[in-house]
Design a protein around this nucleic acid. Sequence first.
DNA 1: TACTTCAATGCAAAGGTTTGCAGGTAGATC
DNA 2: GATCTACCTGCAAACCTTTGCATTGAAGTA
Lengths: 376, 376
Amino acid sequence: MPVTIRDVARASGVHISTVSRTFSAPHLVNPETRVRVLACAEDLGYRPNRAARALITGRTHNIGLIIADIANPFFPPLIKAAESQARHRDYHVFVADTNEDAAAEEELVHALAKQVDGVLLCSPRMSNSLIEQLSREVPLVVVNRQLAGLPCVLMDVGQGARSAIEHLAGLGHREIALLGGPRGSWTSRELRRAAGAAARAAGAELTVLGPNPPTETGGLAQAEQVRRAGVTAVLAYNDLMAIGLLEGLDALGVRVPQEVSVVGVDDISLSRLTRPKLTTVATPTAAAGRTAVDMLLQQDTDFPRTARGGGATVAVGVRRTTAQVMLQTELVIRDSTGPGPYAGRERPGTAAVGPGPHRRADPGNPVVAAGDVVAS
Amino acid sequence: MPVTIRDVARASGVHISTVSRTFSAPHLVNPETRVRVLACAEDLGYRPNRAARALITGRTHNIGLIIADIANPFFPPLIKAAESQARHRDYHVFVADTNEDAAAEEELVHALAKQVDGVLLCSPRMSNSLIEQLSREVPLVVVNRQLAGLPCVLMDVGQGARSAIEHLAGLGHREIALLGGPRGSWTSRELRRAAGAAARAAGAELTVLGPNPPTETGGLAQAEQVRRAGVTAVLAYNDLMAIGLLEGLDALGVRVPQEVSVVGVDDISLSRLTRPKLTTVATPTAAAGRTAVDMLLQQDTDFPRTARGGGATVAVGVRRTTAQVMLQTELVIRDSTGPGPYAGRERPGTAAVGPGPHRRADPGNPVVAAGDVVAS
DNA sequence: TACTTCAATGCAAAGGTTTGCAGGTAGATC
DNA sequence: GATCTACCTGCAAACCTTTGCATTGAAGTA
């Protein structure tokens, strides 16, 4: 029932190879023939069967998107941007959800490998060595995790954490808690590292609470701990946890920001809707999705998977680009942070605060400039 | 480089057809042979090439998910549930975003048709006749829209609107506004119809404002109109608009619920996080995703697309199931609705309020019983 | 006129899999 | 011991497309 290249060939009185060329190498066919074939194809509603094409060209024109949790509001903007970018380049996108499960990630890469030209691994939870191994099966681009030798799209959460800590220290906070993210998260480690260093530099003490599930519940569950820890400010792994914490503190009767200041990470759309509005480190999620797709497709055109020559399939070397892109983050100051107990006093150790973060106009959708290539 | 059925055949010393049968018809192959083949396949890491398989069986084991706007928080839970359900049944899922654009919807169905066994059309914006036409090209299941002769998964927003209006009328509101959704939305029409009838029955007056884009901005932009309309309660097309309205009213200094009550639709996770917490009509989004996938796959097994018989491809009749499922909604009363100007007074026309909606324990994720089949 | 050149088209193999049919072997039955 | 019956396996065609090579014919050159 579906119309094939053969139907078009019959209708336009040419061989199927001519029809094929009309689409994939138009300059090789006589203009008159071309218009005739095109007309017939249009008439019959012919669309090349991409699967059949993939069988011989080795390129499916599909990519895979593996996501830890679609329902986590951090991801939809990334998915949307990636899908849009891919489709502009005539690629279709498989989306799969792993429920934050490393085993599911591996299984999905295997399952998708034959059907795609590459896979975007978003905030993967599996081990570095496994990712490396899988990258030999199918081209991979990793988002939100740094791996030597693999193309990565990163957000500079380290810088973000520094800004956040400096902001808090500048407000007079000295006892700060970090709500860690899930085990296996690169972002969480990075945050911890940078926040720890920044706290030391600012003469503040950092207490790490976690690991925690990266959800509202995860944040809510730590409210009690936060109060008990006696800190006056908290940096959370992400906005969702920060929002959960806001709820938890509210339930405990702890006022934000009067008693405790809270900072999130991501700047998801909800963070403007809480009361108080959340101070947070904005990450360029959409840009990350676009960039990752670009890198994957670039890689794909640089090193095609197979090339046919006279019937013999020639396997091409497995060299790969390994560019790593770091996208900038930005501290967005809203209403969940306020003066701490040391407000106004001279900070011990350091002299001045340096160029602090600016208060942002808060246009909702941060437009982020193209990222800086930090390695290649 | 990728390992094929031929490699496995060579390694295990059998013909490729035996390998094929080991996977797709195990009962036809000798148990000893089977284990040997399986072992070799495991060893080599063989995975059948689904595209090649699809070429001959006519079933791709993929489905398509066409979404108006992935970033709209209504959809991610639906996508997540659909993807999970599909993968349980060994299907992979293409996800595509149309940006609320009808033309993009059509193009996507065409583009995906050859690569999937069916498409889920979520809240489509195109015309009924076009949908019907497309359904002849590829099996379709429509979510959030009712079409005669096509399988649909609906949420009973009519009932939801009724509950909401009755709730508001019961609180003493007589001047109510409805913030309409986007043009072409079945849900919006349904809401308007049911809300209008319920308002009439309750002796209240309903003012329709719209159509509007189904976003926070869409709601925010109507705040001024709402105030000017002099209503004391508003039912919004969805939570996003309701939240935007909340913001807008706050900016205008209008207190909710003291001066104006607001009700949303969907019960997205944000609606528990606004201040005041949003009263809303909960729609069983995840259940809709699961159900829609089930219907699509059911349809697919009932009426396979092609069947081979000795080399001749036999086109099978195009009969289809047209079951329509209506899922129940539930009014969740939170803090954005309060007494209106007629509170306590006898309602004109009607005698009593009937069994009003109950205050819900608010467990976050409404578990909804299997839907009622209303037609087949 | 004879030869080369080039553009346009056809031919056929290949890609990985499924599946109807036919062949082969072994056990059971009489 | 011959015949029948299962069971298992191999053969080859088919799915739809791409592409290197061969073929054709016309235009250009000497």
